[in-house]
């Protein structure tokens, strides 16, 4: 008995294959989902991958949010299904209002592509339980529209409820408020972050770090023990 974790492919997704591979390496069963298919094929959790879905036309994530597959995902996420949004996936989650706030162009207007140090601020979510509270991890970051923003009241609420899940360390790469790199919803089943854990799961690639594996082992444990 293992868990089925779906990864959605939108037109313009780039990291769906890497996400499927990360799911498999963690020991879960990867399931490819298609943006036009409302059926989630009995998956237990969903990853919205990085890329430039619909060319980032209008706003990053704005058109994907109205795709047929998102209708089902939004409904089931509200019912507790775990959803992880990575980069463009995070943008889709804020556009869907599953997570608060919005994403803006990086404050320096440059595309960022680097290894980024993060601190795990909340290991109580469905996707972060395999990390220690306060653990520092190194995860690749690559985006144009990564500046998380929200009004002060929303930020205060996120901070007070421990819903800031990741914070940038050693410098803020995009001007996000309070160095926020990732957040969760009140229930802790929906998590979004700009950096890419699915690119840090095998020693042979990148700088050889595997700090991203914990996302996928966390969700597997959560689902198998459920």
């Amino acid at each position: 008995m293992t868990a089925r974790v779906g990864v959605v492919t939108f037109p313009g997704s780039l990291d769906d294959r890497d996400a499927l591979r990360a799911v498999k390496l963690a020991g879960a069963e990867p399931v490819a989902l298609w943006h036009r298919d409302k059926d989630l094929h009995q998956v237990d959790a969903v990853v919205l991958p990085g890329g430039f879905s619909y060319g980032d036309y209008l706003r990053a994530g704005a058109i994907s949010r109205f795709s047929p597959v998102m209708e089902t995902i939004i409904e089931q996420a509200k019912g507790g299904m775990p959803v992880l949004g990575i980069c463009n996936g995070f943008q889709v989650l804020t556009e869907s209002h599953l997570l608060p706030g919005a994403m803006l162009r990086n404050n320096h207007l440059h595309f960022v592509c680097k290894d980024q140090k993060l601190r795990v601020e909340n290991n109580g979510t469905a996707w972060t339980s395999d990390y220690a509270q306060g653990q520092e991890i190194m995860i690749p970051l690559k985006n144009m529209d990564g500046r998380f923003t929200a009004d002060r009241r929303t930020i205060d609420e996120l901070e007070a409820e421990g819903r800031v899940v990741f914070r940038y360390l050693d410098g803020n790469p995009n001007g996000s408020i309070d160095d926020i790199a990732g957040i969760t919803n009140a229930a802790g089943n929906v998590v979004g972050l700009m950096p890419h854990p699915e690119h840090a799961v095998e020693p042979i690639v990148g700088t050889g770090g595997t700090d991203g594996t914990g996302f996928f082992t966390s969700i597997l444990k959560r689902l198998v023990n459920a």
Binding site: L58, R59, A62, F66, T94, E95, P100, G101, A102, L104, T149, A150, D151
Partner: peptide
């Protein structure tokens, strides 16, 4: 709902 994101 679509053309503008009223958060920003």
């Amino acid at each position: 709902t679509f053309l503008a994101n009223t958060v920003i």
